[in-house]
């Protein structure tokens, strides 16, 4: 009996996992804005980001998922926690939470809701905004495909955008150094 012939497990990209991850993300997101303790908010945000990485995996984009874990959960959130830990938690616990941007919030939520409706509705002629797509290559090729899109001489269409984005980040880093240091 060849082990490869043993019935393989069903794929992970099932509706069950999608709803599980989506629930985790939404609960995490709500906790981020309702917790008074900033460290608890940060930990809820980490949970949300990890669930998001799992969602990328479900979309057969392992490279994006890996980068999400390294950059957001492992890098940015550590810096967040670093700053938050220096805040006096006792004071923030006593302060009343406020939200002065509810008008903008409602507008943004309405726009997002409208977008969702637009995505999910099918016109009478059967056309949708996002037609159902199917992956044309194996999941394992994801990293190589992304590299091809970015750097390949023949297929690399996003090289310029990529370089511009990295230049922007460099400018931001230099700006941070200039603003933080009086004398360089």
């Amino acid at each position: 009996m060849n082990p490869a012939a043993i019935p393989t497990n069903p794929p992970v990209a099932t509706p069950f996992f999608f709803y599980l991850l989506a629930t985790v993300m939404i609960i995490g997101g709500i906790l981020v804005i309702t917790r008074k303790n900033a460290v608890h908010s940060a930990m809820a945000l980490i949970t949300t980001l990890l669930a998001q990485a799992a969602l990328y995996l479900m979309l057969y984009a392992p490279f994006v998922a890996g980068v999400q874990i390294i950059l957001y959960a492992g890098g940015i959130m550590v810096l967040f926690l670093f700053v938050i830990m220096l805040i006096s938690i006792e004071r923030t616990e006593k302060e009343r939470q406020f939200n002065k941007q509810w008008l903008v919030g409602i507008a943004a939520a309405a726009a997002l809701g409208g977008l969702f409706i637009a995505v999910y509705t099918t016109t009478t002629s059967g056309r949708t905004l996002f037609p159902e797509g199917k992956l044309s290559y194996a999941e394992g090729e994801n990293t190589q495909r992304i590299a091809g899109l970015l750097f390949d001489r023949a297929t690399g269409t996003y090289m310029f955008a990529f370089e511009i984005a990295s230049l922007l980040l460099l400018v931001a880093i230099i700006g941070a150094v200039v603003m933080a240091k009086k004398r360089i």
Binding site: I46, V67, I69, I70, A73, G74, G75, M77, L81
Partner: peptide, 11 residues
């Protein structure tokens, strides 16, 4: 990525 998560536990 995953080993960089351990710092979250330490912090």
């Amino acid at each position: 990525g995953v080993s960089s998560l351990s710092v979250l536990g330490i912090v």
